[in-house]
Computed example of a mutant assay.
Amino acid sequence: MASSILIPFEFPDPEPVSPVLVEDLSSLEIVLLGHYGVPEQTPKESARDEFEDEVIERLEELAEPFIEAGADVRTRLVFGKDRAAAIDRVTIEEECAAELDPAPTEGIDRILVPLPDVAEFDRLPRFVDVLCEDTANTITLFHVVEGEEDHERGEEIVTETREGLLEVGFDPDAVDTRVSDTGSHDDEIIRVASEYDAVVMYEAESRLGDRIFGTLPDRIRNATGDPVIVVRRDY
């Protein structure tokens, strides 16, 4: 579904989503995923039998603020050992167009949008727009030049995406661009993200180090303390 977002909660100690994000995301279709991390030696069925009723009740409590804000909310519950696999599976099954990597926030004024070398577009504007509470928001389209790519191509990517945002109604004064050709790709995005209040980005390609160091969105969230919306690519 084009305007649906998955919001995962990790049990047994889930953290509620900040009221600011609840309000911002309430215009979307919300899928709340409760993932209960089962220890390696514990059968999933045993954990489900012992904790399912308690987790369902808590998941319903986490859904209540979204319902009160007027959102269309669905819930899913998974007992398992692999959180990332559960998120991927439920995202596909529920046809979610994006995932929220949540973090506490009291307000979002500056939004960073890192762009890949091939800047897709169809899904991006919707998930940038939901974070724009008013005309004071600043949106920065950011590209890191890497490999054989040159700075000129980076400028083309951010310029073309900016033009696309303006065509669908974004304020020209609110959308700026930024290109970097220094530092490693991921490190540079994390560094620049620290200057912003939230990040909206396309899903990054899987890398060998993801299971050790975490995915790029996870590392952005952990390093900056800011929420990250990860948009599925427009295939």
Score class of each variant (00 low, 15 high):
Glu23Asp: 13
Ala2Pro: 12
Phe170Pro: 02
Glu45Tyr: 09
Asp181Cys: 06
Ala103Arg: 09
Ala63Gly: 15
Glu188Phe: 02
Gly37Pro: 04
Asp218Pro: 01
Glu152Asn: 14
Ala2Met: 13
Asp173Phe: 08
Glu148Trp: 10
Thr159Asn: 11
Ala136Met: 14
Ser4Trp: 04
Phe66Cys: 04
Gly107Asn: 14
Glu163Met: 12
Leu28Glu: 00
Asp234Trp: 08
Leu141Arg: 04
Ala174Glu: 08
Glu188Trp: 02
Ser184Thr: 14
Thr182Met: 09
Leu62Asn: 05
Asp122Met: 10
Glu52Asn: 09
Glu106Trp: 11
Ile5Val: 14
Lys44Trp: 11
Ile229Thr: 01
Ile87Gly: 03
Ser3Thr: 13
Phe213Asp: 05
Ile220His: 00
Glu29Tyr: 09
Glu68Lys: 10
Val158Asn: 01
Pro8Trp: 01
Pro39Asn: 13
Thr177Tyr: 06
Pro116Leu: 08
Val38Thr: 06
Glu148Gln: 13
Glu15Val: 09
Glu99Leu: 11
Val231Asp: 01
Ser180Thr: 11
Val113Leu: 05
Glu195Ala: 12
Pro102Phe: 02
Leu112Trp: 03
Tyr196Gly: 00
Val199Cys: 05
Met201Asn: 04
Ser26Asn: 07
Leu28Met: 11
Glu10Met: 10
Glu93Ser: 14
Pro217Tyr: 02
Asp176Thr: 12
Arg178Thr: 04
Ser194Cys: 12
Asp176Lys: 09
His185Pro: 03
Cys132Lys: 12
Val130Arg: 01
